[in-house]
């Protein structure tokens, strides 16, 4: 049935967990992360006739996940602003059921302080292990922007994490 086209259900089974993990690092809660990933695969499903290469399909899903996650976070911020609610001290990690060490909690909290673009670049760089060129393609920005976002982000992180010690 799928023939030479991309087999979306198979890709879904193979890549679901990694994509939800990527999304959770970008939106901070598992529920939204799973929604984002569903939507990303649905978008792929709609476009599957135009994609032939599974690698391109995975890149497409990854880019959708990053974009949809950004919308989720933005929407959350708008809602919060609209309701004029005091920012809770922590919005992240609400459902990270794990023994995260203090060092890791601190690193994640510092990451959340960075501008959105820098967060995305660092997550794709250090968690997804993408090259500069791949990150550039995923985010639809130039390799130069990737480089500068990464180095600015890392500089700020070093400062924050160094200063807290």
């Amino acid at each position: 049935m799928w023939g030479a086209e991309v087999d979306v259900p198979a890709l879904y089974v193979t890549h679901w967990r990694a994509m939800v993990r990527l999304a959770v690092l970008l939106v901070d809660d598992v529920h939204s992360a799973e929604d984002v990933v569903q939507d990303a695969f649905v978008a792929l499903h709609r476009r599957s006739h135009t994609l032939r290469d599974p690698a391109a399909a995975v890149a497409y899903v990854r880019a959708s996940v990053v974009n949809l996650s950004r919308s989720v976070v933005r929407h959350r911020q708008v809602v919060r602003k609209h309701l004029r609610v005091a920012e809770p001290d922590h919005v992240d990690g609400a459902d990270f059921h794990v023994l995260l060490s203090a060092e890791h909690r601190e690193a994640l909290a510092a990451l959340r302080e960075l501008p959105r673009r820098q967060q995305e670049v660092l997550v794709l760089r250090f968690w997804s292990g993408l090259s500069e060129a791949e990150i550039a393609e995923t985010l639809g920005i130039s390799a130069g922007s990737v480089k500068s976002s990464a180095s600015r982000g890392m500089a700020k992180l070093s400062k924050m994490l160094g200063g807290a010690r």
């Binding site: 690092l25 992360a33 059921h97 794990v98 890791h104 690193a107 990451l111």
Partner: peptide, 23 residues
């Protein structure tokens, strides 16, 4: 810092979505 960040992201991602979680 890179190593700490990589480990932290890894811990958070695997902690939030463990290997047993099925799509």
């Amino acid at each position: 810092v890179g190593k700490v960040l990589r480990d932290a992201l890894d811990a958070a991602a695997t902690g939030a979505v463990d290997d047993a979680r099925r799509p």
